[in-house]
Nucleic acid binder design. Sequence first.
DNA 1: CGGAACTTTGACGACTCTCAAGCTTCGTGG
DNA 2: CCACGAAGCTTGAGAGTCGTCAAAGTTCCG
Lengths: 221, 221
Amino acid sequence: MLVRINSAHRRPVDGHLAAVAGDRACCSEFRYRRGSEIFGEGEDAEFVYQITSGAVRTYKLLPDGRRQINSFHLPGDMFGFENNEAHRFTAEAITETDVRIMTQSNLLGAMPGQAAGPKNLIGFVTQNLQHAENHMLLLGRKTSLEKVAAFLREMDERLAQPDVLNLPMTRRDIADYLGLTLETVSRSLSTLRDEHILRFDGPTQRRVEILDRDRLSQLDA
Amino acid sequence: MLVRINSAHRRPVDGHLAAVAGDRACCSEFRYRRGSEIFGEGEDAEFVYQITSGAVRTYKLLPDGRRQINSFHLPGDMFGFENNEAHRFTAEAITETDVRIMTQSNLLGAMPGQAAGPKNLIGFVTQNLQHAENHMLLLGRKTSLEKVAAFLREMDERLAQPDVLNLPMTRRDIADYLGLTLETVSRSLSTLRDEHILRFDGPTQRRVEILDRDRLSQLDA
DNA sequence: CGGAACTTTGACGACTCTCAAGCTTCGTGG
DNA sequence: CCACGAAGCTTGAGAGTCGTCAAAGTTCCG
């Protein structure tokens, strides 16, 4: 379910979309409910998205339902750019999520064609590629504990947390990101808790405090 | 070991590098011996490469030596483009390999800044990203037999073989590409042979004839 | 021609998955 | 605000897929 929350002409205040597009022809804002689909694999790619709040998962499915999550997207992240082709994966809101939207063609048209830098389209696609390359190493060659440790380090870094990680995704999401089952994720987290590398904060199991970043790094190969 | 085999001003006759660069400022040619390194992870990215004959593997290593091969590169393929940064993985010649080389800066300078199409840099990086996304699904969620079947389908398609696949890589290379051990790859191939889905051609085990593409596809999820 | 590299196959083991049960948390509606 | 049902999480026991270790045969290359 999609709810429009702003006028189509509201101007963005900061972030990549504005930087990339040169702050023009931008952006509608939309809100997606927890679990709702933003776009589906195979659909024509009409828009590019940037998260203002919430979190998004992008994934592929096998015919029998096995799922591989490519990446999690957090506030500030851009996703859905497809270079004038169909979406190659599905995007869903993990929690209630607000996004800015602009059309792919506006983004392309607004792009000056210059070379390097993280703010242009090549830099954007290259960042995704780099993440995918690192993730292939994780999926193909790391143990379950190493995978979970790497996941926590990634979230720790991306959420830039002073204190407690507030994970938006379920154990199953984490499992499908790491190529594990949710039980194995749970067991690995329990192991890290027993080793006093992390602790769970409060009643929920989604709030995690990293107690020992050094040992966490050691575990991640 | 690197051997120069052509004048620096030989003009390319076809393929991506020429198309991308607009057929100018191109290309020296070099030959690499079996197993020699073309560039190393972390090195400054000076050149972009296109294979004229042979095969190349690109991979990352964990500190303890576990290896994940990102991709195999075959004649016509371009690799090594890094958008003005350091190489993110190592590239090695699998067999004796001839490549065309041009500098990254020439490639960037020669690029007109326009938008879509598979022949420009964004299209090139996007192709790599797409391959990586498919490979994450394979690594995270497919069984050993599905992985080997997918590998054979990929090679069958890319080598565009009328008859027999002549695989340049060892079982260990295949294993490190699929996130398996060489023994598991060997066992899976034997299973496919026993099922009359493929047969080995001649004395070597590197020449494979696909006997039943339909059943091979079914096995690949 | 000889040795190194590669491949296959077997036996065994272990890491991770599957299946299951029970508990906790969350979200919705009364 | 509380209650209830659904969803999420943990933990255990057992099984299975794939990895490890080992040995022998084959191919390749100098």
